[in-house]
Amino acid sequence: MYRRAGRGRVLLLAFVAISIVVVTLDFRQSSGGPLKRAKDLAVTVVAPVQRGFTSVTRPVGDFFSSVANLANLRGENERLEQALDQAQADADGLPAIEDENEELRAQLDLENSWRTMEAVTATVISSNIANYKWAIVIGKGRSDGIKPDMAAINSDGLVGKVLRSGPHYATVLLLVDPAAAAAAKVDGIGDGGLVEGNGGGEMLSLSFIDTDSSVAVGDEVVTSGLDGGVFPPGVQIGSVAEVGGSDAAGELQVAVESAVDFKALLFVTVLLETGDRLGAEAR
């Protein structure tokens, strides 16, 4: 019994020592090295299981609603066919308008809008794993052209940026994470600042806004594109929810309600143009 307890303590000390070595390793190397490979490996092992759970649980929710809606399906189908016809007719005219738009943009020397960038849409296969970090894993990676520092958006606005990309999976840091930030401006006023996350369920905060700014509740906040080109300009972030007093540094404390529902992300679109190219175009 004594020996058993003794061996338990030796084992404990060994693993505590290994943990501390790993922490030190992580501190010494900012990127790359064996830890990066270990991270890629961990995602590669766990992601298929996560994908399994996500794809098993999603149809269950859909299934019950589909049975209930069976009667409406025929009518729904007819309505959708009509809508599709209409959309097809509208779309026929689009290429001409697109060409014209492109030509005019070229003449005006405008930078490329994020709306025309190449992009891939991926399913979200896992959400947060812990309560203090806000990130998701998506089901596409390097093989689809996704690289770190690319912007991730959805139809509502800015979701976050790609942190790591493996062959078939990528990790996206959400804008609500306390480590995430995006250069932003108040649309219409043009006052620029930095939007930072405060954790899930909390408002984003917009800093570096002068006290004499005319920013008001309800103003739209969009990316400014001034952060070394991670985020292209003009992507919706949210709207001003609160304008507080000035802080010690003489800046307004502005709370921003995000346009994106970070708890219900099913798909995200990654803009396939990295920082360098965005920066070059903005200059």
Binding site: S19, V23, F27, L35, A38, K39, L163, L173, A179
Partner: peptide, 10 residues
């Protein structure tokens, strides 16, 4: 290893 931007080993 799965957590983003946190200290590995903690």
């Amino acid at each position: 290893l799965l957590l983003p931007q946190s200290i590995v080993g903690l």
